[in-house]
Simulated assay, not measured.
Amino acid sequence: MAAPVAIHLEFGGGAELLFNGVKEHHVTLPSQSEPWDVKQLLVWIQRNLLKERPELFVQGDSVRPGILVLINDADWELMGELDYRLQDQDNIVFISTLHGG
């Protein structure tokens, strides 16, 4: 069993509006048989945090184009994107680069 993972999530650039305007969330992901990865995290966020309009945050099983994802201040493209295995105390930031007018 993989142990629970405590992580810090941050939403900015307007993405926080989908989460009742709350920018920062400290969450503990429950134990599960396999280590948590970003793909599973996105499903968890949709089920537990996302309050409205999921289509503005996710597309298919990834984040929507126009949302920048940083893992511990590095672009997630350098970290393996959806396959990145979450570590305890990771800091994951989602920033919307699309601004409505």
Rank of each mutant, 00 (worst) to 15 (best):
A74Y: 13
G12K: 01
H25E: 08
L98G: 14
I67D: 05
E52Q: 13
H99P: 07
P54T: 14
V38Q: 09
L18N: 04
K39C: 03
V63C: 11
H25C: 07
A3G: 01
I7A: 01
E16K: 03
S33I: 04
P65Q: 10
P4N: 02
V27W: 06
L86E: 11
S33Q: 04
Q59D: 15
Q40W: 05
H26P: 02
K39H: 10
F19Y: 05
N48L: 11
W44F: 07
E81N: 14
A2Q: 07
L41A: 05
E55W: 11
S62M: 15
G60P: 12
V69G: 08
H99F: 05
L17K: 10
W76C: 15
E34P: 00
S62F: 12
L78A: 14
L42Q: 00
E24Y: 04
S31K: 06
V43G: 00
A6H: 01
F11E: 06
L29V: 07
V93A: 15
L86F: 10
F94W: 13
Q59W: 14
E55K: 11
R64M: 11
E16A: 01
V5G: 03
N20L: 06
P4Q: 00
P35M: 03
D61A: 12
R47P: 09
H26S: 11
W44V: 09
S33V: 03
L98A: 13
R47E: 12
K23R: 11
V5N: 00
P35E: 04
L29W: 03
D83P: 06
L50H: 09
H25S: 00
A3P: 00
H99T: 11
A74D: 14
L70C: 10
V43T: 05
E24P: 04
G60L: 14
V22C: 07
W36R: 03
D90E: 15
G12A: 05
G80F: 10
G12Y: 03
L41S: 04
V27Y: 08
E77F: 08
L49C: 07
A2I: 02
R47V: 11
V43R: 01
N72F: 10
E55P: 14
D88F: 13
R47D: 09
P65W: 02
D37P: 08
E77P: 03
G14T: 05
D75L: 09
N72S: 08
G21Y: 08
M1L: 01
H26I: 05
W36Q: 00
L49W: 06
